[in-house]
């Protein structure tokens, strides 16, 4: 294992981490406004299949990813309508969204299993070395010799951080998640912000799915998301609802995702089938450690998962 192998491995971890970053950011924004949407996996599936089929139909990378984002938004809006407008239980609705999204992708995707993404899209998202930044030794190779969507992710992280911490809308949305009653008394639209954050979150989760089917794999496979949506939900907890920490966590899990495959060449005493369980096992361990540490103070939005009805007494 020399430095070269290691740089190569980390570069691949960035790619594997990208869908996790997108989904984690999506769930983070959603949860900031107080909605606990456990349908990330479902929205990713919807984004993956719609993005993929749109790509097949149009051949356009742009429309493919717009399609992916819109599919994610559709899933999020179903969740929003059922939980916000019709006031149903968020946990059960989120689980339903996951099952629905998985079924949806299977329904549309079964006939095209194994089909490759259009060459034009694959060609668009080859690795491009950024000028200057890409020339930094080691770091440049790992972070700045990637495809365009990875770069877009960097921008999105900063945008999300900026939105949440510096802008009025982000502050208002956060207040909705912390204390919807207080938000309402300030004239902040609780319903409006919850829908808005759900939509933003859905779009990001849809993009995450699209990244998997169009760039990462890039062909249509059954059970492609493979629990990444759930890892994203765990990463939000791990990140303490901070977008920058979320990125670090996602990179780590991106690395875990590929470590089994990458270590194959070294003839390890452990079966790769067991190494494949690593990301899931690590999620468990990380979650447990996190809950052990933060027994006293939680960073979760105080109103997370609680519905709000103004006139309820």
């Amino acid at each position: 294992m020399d430095l070269n192998w290691f740089v190569c491995f980390l570069g691949a971890a960035v790619v594997a981490g990208t869908p996790l970053v997108l989904a984690t950011l999506g769930e983070l924004i959603t949860e900031k406004s107080g909605s606990l949407n456990l349908g990330v996996e479902g929205m990713m599936y919807m984004g993956a299949i719609i993005g993929f089929t749109t790509g097949l139909q149009t051949g356009s990378p742009f429309f493919a990813f717009i399609g992916a984002a819109l599919a994610g938004i559709l899933g999020a809006m179903i969740f929003g309508f059922v939980t916000i407008t019709l006031r149903a239980n968020q946990i059960v609705t989120g689980l339903t969204l996951t099952m629905f999204g998985t079924g949806f992708a299977g329904f549309i995707g079964t006939p095209i299993i194994g089909e490759r993404a259009p060459q034009k899209i694959i060609d668009t998202f080859v690795k491009v070395k950024l000028p200057l930044l890409g020339d930094i030794p080691v770091i440049g190779e790992i972070f700045f010799n990637q495809d365009y969507l990875v770069y877009l992710t960097y921008i999105l992280i900063i945008l999300v951080g900026f939105y949440l911490y510096k802008s009025r809308y982000g502050l208002n949305g956060t207040i909705v998640g912390e204390n919807p009653k207080a938000a309402d008394s300030l004239g902040i639209s609780v319903i409006g912000y919850r829908y808005l954050h759900l939509a933003m979150g859905g779009a990001l989760c849809g993009l995450a799915g699209g990244y998997l089917s169009l760039i990462y794999v890039p062909s249509w496979q059954d059970s492609m998301i493979a629990g990444r949506g759930w890892i994203a939900v765990a990463l939000v907890i791990f990140s303490k609802w901070n977008p920058y920490r979320a990125y670090i966590g996602a990179l780590f899990f991106g690395g875990l995702n590929i470590v089994g495959f990458r270590l194959q060449q070294f003839d390890l005493p452990v079966s790769t089938y067991l190494l494949d369980a690593l990301p899931y096992l690590m999620t468990v361990i990380v979650l447990v450690f996190d809950s052990m540490r933060s027994k006293s103070r939680s960073h979760a939005p105080a109103g997370l998962g609680t519905p709000y009805f103004r006139e309820e007494r």
């Binding site: 809308y169 502050l171 938000a183 004239g187």
Partner: peptide, 26 residues
């Protein structure tokens, strides 16, 4: 209100400045 409508995890000024109207940037 009798039961204060404040965000415990935020600073005083953030509680005051929040609201739908005003500049985009805080």
């Amino acid at each position: 209100y009798q039961h204060f409508k404040l965000i415990s995890a935020m600073k005083a000024w953030q509680n005051i400045i929040a609201g739908p109207s005003g500049s985009l940037m805080l």
